[in-house]
Nucleic acid binder design. Structure first.
Lengths: 191, 191
DNA sequence: TTAAATAATACAACACTGTGTTGGATTAAC
DNA sequence: GTTAATCCAACACAGTGTTGTATTATTTAA
């Protein structure tokens, strides 16, 4: 049963890899099962032994890319700089850059952003209120604002051909969160 | 020639409407031309007289939803509150709520967000530097951060079943931009 | 002013591509 | 030798995009 398992895992991964190389080139609806299996070197019907359709492959792949709650240090980081754990986010994005850059691009999957928020938001919520459910609207909207901003700037960062050095980005994000974007925009205007 | 034109426009709009009612229910790849034309009351092949495929319908529809540069007052608003024209954004989102709420949702189109940014960013850029191209990275990243945040919070707002009153949202966004999200998060923490 | 010619709108039918399933062949594990 | 996994060939079906044609509105010319 040992060799069989490894074969299965291997085939599965081959299909995922073939899918991903196609997903980097075109949107998912243009990807056919035929193409995937051709690239991976299998019969088309073999695909259906492993996945339901192309969207199923994407779904399973995304699942591995969503940070595991139990892996993230829950409150420690929040108390450290009393805000969003910027360094953790940067690590997450940089580490999975290959996938994140595509999934969060204009050809990517809006559901992935949603999934990310859905995992992280309650985490932050509980850090601030002790409960995962929003106590007041202000906090809820503020988190949505900040999370969107964070995901937006980090997507931009990892997609950039010449990305900002890590420390500069870190400093900028912190300044943005501590002093507001307006102040920084005004400084730029003065220059 | 008058009646012919109006028939064309009418048919075209019928197809777009039928498409949209389907797009509200499911993702675009599950929408067939057959369904669209059935709902609109035409033969399937009539569709191809008007659009290339379902994506073409979406594309044309989105085009009408992207704010026209010439319609937006260019610098006046920026100088008013020396930042992002929050009220303009709120108007834009509220006015096109029916479409924006879907297009910016997890079942929507990431390309639409991209299109929005691509139109608005140079506008803001030129307001701050006089040129549409970024002079320094800091400004570029700051705009990306703020635009992402703005689009994020406004999407959340219009999708909410019981949305925050306009004036409260406006005040919150201004505070977020002027003082930074951290301060507001800290205030919430204290409560 | 009316009848014929033209151009638009809509559709039926066709060839093609991709989908998902079923039943069978091969090969490893027991 | 039996069982079960992996893979594949073939089938029925659904959706696509095109082509040729009928119908009807507009234009042209007698």
């Amino acid at each position: 049963m040992k060799q069989r398992e490894s074969i299965t895992q291997h085939t599965r991964q081959n299909i995922i890899d073939a899918f991903w190389s196609l997903y980097c080139e075109k949107t998912i609806d243009k990807i056919t099962v035929k193409e995937i299996t051709q690239k991976a070197g299998y019969n088309r019907s073999t695909f259906y032994e492993y996945f339901h359709d192309a969207y199923d492959v994407l779904d399973k792949l995304e699942e591995t890319l969503i940070p595991n709650l139990s892996e993230l240090p829950p409150i420690t980081v929040l108390s450290k700089d009393f805000g969003l754990p910027t360094d953790l986010f940067m690590d997450l994005f940089e580490h999975n850059k290959k996938y994140y850059a595509v999934l969060l691009s204009e050809n990517g999957d809006p559901a992935f952003t949603s999934r990310l928020k859905k995992v992280i938001k309650p985490l932050l919520m509980s850090a601030f209120t002790g409960s995962t459910k929003p106590i007041n609207h202000s906090l809820d909207y503020t988190l949505e604002y900040t999370l969107s901003a964070m995901i937006g700037i980090l997507s931009y960062w990892i997609s950039s051909p010449k990305p900002l050095p890590n420390d500069e980005l870190y400093a900028l994000v912190h300044k943005l969160m501590q002093e507001g974007s307006l102040k920084i925009l005004q400084e730029n205007h003065a220059v």
